[in-house]
């Protein structure tokens, strides 16, 4: 069973979600059956992929792909899947993965298993478990097609290193119709110096209990002590205290970090929908009846203005981060 894994690069190598995808692929098939595909792959990225057991990687270094285009990326990945006879194509459910996986599925006449939280080997194919209704239910889905495209929710599959392998890199050129009509990325802007909640391993979120934007330094300080990203509830984003990119919940981002710390957040259903699959949940709220405590592993009933500074210094003492 051949598997093609689309690998997203980062400035220092491989995105963590791609390491997770490689680990998940290894659980389905032996290393010799797994091929990676990268766009403009770097030595750092190939090395990083080798730490997760990748033996063979296709690399596309095409002028046409310099300005990333979702339509062309889909053509390239589909062509590569044909070339290696892939039964399963795996991507991460990132902004890019979610955008191009449906196109690849159409091109390969494949069933799309979107945003999976579990992959289950099934004969010559794979079944998956995926959350629906914002995580309020889980469905097990089975493709009815010979080829399957699956996207994996970031932070759910654990990335595990294995005996380092040397990655054989092969240049791959795809037969793109140069007239294909597509969109291209003309520029990218990053929010400097912040970790995005969608990619963070730990998130500290603040809600209305903070009483005003001027008090969010308490959240930022706790986040620093944990090496965490700062998140926010819808109420404080709508009030203009924090930017929308930090919003966790139904109209914001769905996150699944190793630890989620909710501070002064009551826990409306819409907020819980975005974070309830976090591995460990800590809640700080002065109202002991707040719904957030029902989903918390560790709840602290208290005033955030009292608790946050104390908790920050106690955690700093353990982590050494200030």
């Amino acid at each position: 069973m051949n598997i093609l894994v689309y690998l997203e690069t980062s400035p220092n190598g491989l995105k963590r979600s791609s390491s997770e995808a490689l680990t998940a692929a290894r659980a389905l098939a032996g290393g010799s059956h797994i091929t990676g595909i990268m766009f403009n792959g770097t030595p750092a990225a190939f090395n990083a992929a080798g730490e997760y057991g990748l033996q063979r990687c296709l690399n596309i270094n095409d002028k046409i792909i310099e300005q990333f285009s979702n339509g062309l990326a889909a053509i390239a990945i589909s062509d590569a899947a044909h070339a290696i006879g892939a039964k399963i194509v795996i991507l991460s459910a990132t902004a890019t993965g979610k955008d191009i996986a449906p196109r690849i599925a159409v091109r390969l006449q494949a069933g799309l298993l979107a945003d999976c939280v579990e992959l289950i080997p099934s004969g010559d194919s794979v079944e998956a478990v995926r959350p629906i209704y914002a995580g309020k239910a889980l469905i097990r889905v089975k493709p009815e097609t010979a080829v399957v495209v699956a996207t994996l929710r970031p932070n759910v599959f654990t990335a595990r290193k294995t005996e380092r392998t040397t990655v054989a890199v092969e240049a791959f050129s795809f037969a793109s119709d140069k007239d294909v009509r597509t969109s291209v990325v003309v520029s990218t802007s990053q929010n400097m110096g912040t970790i995005d909640v969608a990619e963070a391993d730990v998130i500290v979120s603040g809600g209305r209990g903070l009483k005003g934007p001027e008090n969010f330094h308490l959240i930022e300080e706790l986040a620093r002590s944990l090496g965490a990203a700062v998140g926010a509830s819808r109420a404080v984003v709508d009030a203009g205290w924090r930017p929308h990119r930090e919003q966790v919940g139904q109209t914001g981002k769905t996150v699944a970090p190793s630890m989620y710390v909710a501070c002064g957040i009551s826990g409306a259903v819409q907020h819980l929908a975005g974070m309830s699959t976090s591995k460990v949940i800590v809640a700080i709220n002065k109202d002991k009846e707040a719904p957030i405590f029902k989903v918390a592993d560790y709840g602290i009933v208290g005033d955030v203005f009292e608790v946050l500074p104390k908790l920050t210094s106690k955690i700093s003492a353990v982590t050494g981060r200030h």
């Binding site: 599925a105 006449q109 494949a110 069933g111 799309l112 298993l113 079944e127 959350p131 629906i132 995580g135 309020k136 239910a137 889980l138 469905i139 097990r140 889905v141 089975k142 493709p143 009815e144 097609t145 309830s276 699959t277």
Partner: peptide
């Protein structure tokens, strides 16, 4: 033709 079938649904 349908490409993906739901086998079962559970509450988390």
């Amino acid at each position: 033709v349908r490409r993906v079938n739901v086998l079962d649904m559970k509450l988390p």
